[in-house]
Design a protein around this nucleic acid. Sequence first.
DNA 1: GACCAGGCACATC
DNA 2: GATGTGCATGGT
Length: 220
Amino acid sequence: MNRRTAQDLQAAYCKLFAHFGPQHWWPGKTPFEVIVGAILTQNTNWGNVEKAIANLRSHRLLSPIKLKKISVSRLAVLIRPAGYFNVKAKRLKNFIDFFFAHYNGSIRAMSKKPWPALRAQLLSVNGIGEETADSILLYALNKPVFVVDTYTRRILSRHKMISPDSDYQTIQKLFMDNLPCRRALFNEYHALLVCVGKQMCRTNPVCAGCPLKHFRGVPC
DNA sequence: GACCAGGCACATC
DNA sequence: GATGTGCATGGT
């Protein structure tokens, strides 16, 4: 653990939490719905994902067994609003196949697997990368794993806590080595980073009202 | 009409 | 190993 880094990460968290308050993530009704959302939200606005999930719900398809039975082409039509619908339909199906092959479609059974081993398994599924795997572990299965996304990288890079080309695991390790290993903290912190990231200007270095303004001597 | 959004896999060099 | 590209909708 690096004392300065730990202090900075904790200070940033406090600023974000004081400004935005609790985010109550992930916005999914069940662990399975969280997993579906994690795959559908890849490089996509969450609002579009909600439309796709609403379609699945209105057709009563938001269950492992129903998605197991549906064809990829019909699934693609239903998730169309989420974008990349052909790719994502295959990815959802890949996950479902994996889910039944290893855990008989049971969240409880999957959750019993030690998370480092489960993470490796998830990464072997075509269409599940590091962020999606970690989102599933943290938000669907309540494992103490930090999720790194575009916003996390952008914010830490701007405040000179990482170099812009740091890889996923380096950034994840920064958080996990320097914060208490608490699921609730990792959950809230990532949600808060997304929250501030959404309103952060990507070009203008000074954002009025940003809770991280001048954090570590950087305008915002 | 351009730009962007809570990535990932694959081809190419 | 690093870099580039395809995938696609909907909001601003």
